[in-house]
Amino acid sequence: MDYLTQQLINGLSIGATYALIALGYTMVYGVLRLINFAHGEVYMMGAVVAYWIAIGIAPWGWPVWGALAVIFGGAMGACAVLGFAIEFFAYRPLRNKPRLVVLITAIGVSLLLQNLAQTRYVFGPTPEAFPAVIEAKTVVRWTMGGPDNVVTVSNLDLLSLGLSLGLMGVLAWVVLRTRQGLALRAVSYRFDTSSLMGINTNRTISFTFMLGSALAAVAGVVDAIRYDVRPLMGLMPGLKAFVAAVLGGIGSIPGAFVGGLVIGLIETLVKGYLSSAYSDAVAFVVLIVILLVRPSGILGRYEAEKL
């Protein structure tokens, strides 16, 4: 029981970062019907930017919360700009091109960012530990039955879950309560007619990319602190988050959030009860099953092809 509880906590903690990345996939897919393959690399760039900021501010010895605020804020800002630039330079010129052309471009952007990060001018090929801004420590400790049955929650787990829940709330407010959010919903509902309704589609798309990229940056920073920073770190979380978005029903914002948590839970359970070797593949098994059984996902709606 305690082991299961611990796995569930770990799963939610990992799932929370998947959820943050998945939100960007799902929002971009919603407005452009594009799988933004480079999204995992935006997450990675968030970690890289945070790394440099942390190194830069280390000598000043700021209090933890101040340092974290600057690191998260800086990474979010930088990634928002990056997301804007990717859309503006790579995807916007291809707006009316076949989807596969855009998809291949997205793969190209993803490769470009990975390889740029591997140059020593951006980051370098070897993994680096994140500067000790916040020390991982156990903040909650339940003893269940005996001294061997302990369930722990670390401050990083709380940070991960807290940030993703908080940001999900912010996102819900933005999408449901602001003008820009209304435009986003309109564009993802009907791309062609929304521009006739006086919505600036280009601005809405830029806004969507920036929003999604900032969320991915948060996930990147959390994982950078939790594990380390490496140029290829975006690959697997990116793909798993995409699976999460499909699982939740691509295009559905609450779906992406739920999907992220579910993928995180499934992955940790497989890791905990089967073998850690299967933890990467299980997401893809889930993906293929979902695509075959219920392609619209848990919370998505199905779009039939018109003849």
């Binding site: 594009l34 799988i35 596969l100 699976v243 499909v246 997401a283 893809f284 993906l287 695509l291 392609p295």
Partner: peptide, 17 residues
Amino acid sequence: RLRGDYLAIATLGFGEI
């Protein structure tokens, strides 16, 4: 049953499996 980008991701998943 899949096309285009969904097919791409599913086959990618098969490769990883």
